[in-house]
Design a binder for these strands. Structure first.
Lengths: 138, 138
DNA sequence: TTATAAATTTGAAATCGTTACAAAATTACA
DNA sequence: TGTAATTTTGTAACGATTTCAAATTTATAA
């Protein structure tokens, strides 16, 4: 079975044409796309696709933990189809988001949240300048 | 000299009445306020304060690293006058943001960013349920 | 002090991302 | 095949943020 359909089913989501297309887009692109990027790219092949459907679907995927929501960029929400643990880096100049491995030491560190708190997700974000932009900056 | 004025000067910011009021608000409240919270609260004492000034000032403070911008909540940007390293927890139910100490092990862990990248800020975010909401959830 | 320039603040209008909602289309099921 | 449930769609509304030019305040020089 298609790995995208399988992924949706595993998270209790009925695989409609639109949902599969959106989930596939997320799993096949490592660009951490915004709603708009997903909508614009997919609309080329699915002319009837609605922006609302993209919003609805991403919201559903989020609720079922089938994707990761990146809030690293204050200007736009980005989405990541790769839910395995990894950190992210946002370049403040080109505004690209890069995947970064979690530093070895910090993986095992337990969140120091107060008693009774239930941690469901952890996000490690960096920002600064990527190599290209760092060169251009001077 | 007033510690707020001092803080602004240290970051190369001319301490106007509005800037001091906004920076003071951030330093005296540990609520991680939104633009709206800052604006509404301060307007009670400063009736002529403009929303645009709050936006302008927060943007200036961010550029000069005089505050910390929290992107943990996808619905709203929050601001933190405490720039010392610490993590944050967002409750998905009450949407409160809590300060969390950085877990001992992870502090020294160097970011595993690619060669040539310049890390300027690090953010560690958790989300889930706070103790109160966890109790109510059932 | 007074005049002039520079910096800051203000409010209105525009913009942009997101949500609400009801109708249309599709899918599941009796 | 008919009916109910689910999903998708497009429009309108909403809310946060930005733009922008005028008004105000502050700094500087005569």
């Amino acid at each position: 079975m298609d790995f995208v359909v399988e992924h949706l089913k595993k998270h209790g989501i009925k695989p409609s044409v639109q949902r599969v297309a959106i989930m596939r887009y997320l799993m096949e692109h490592c660009t951490h796309p915004t709603v708009d990027a997903i909508y614009c790219d997919l609309q080329a092949q699915m002319p009837t696709l609605s922006r609302t459907t993209v919003y609805n679907t991403l919201s559903l995927l989020e609720d079922r933990d089938a994707l990761s929501v990146l809030t690293i960029d204050s200007r736009n929400i980005h989405y990541d189809g790769d839910t395995r643990p990894h950190a992210h880096f946002l370049c403040r100049r080109c505004r690209c988001i890069f995947d970064v491995p979690i530093p070895p030491g910090s993986t095992d560190a337990e969140p120091a949240t107060p008693q009774g708190f239930k941690v469901e997700h952890t996000h490690l974000y960096y920002d600064g300048l990527c190599d290209r932009c760092r060169a251009k900056e001077n």
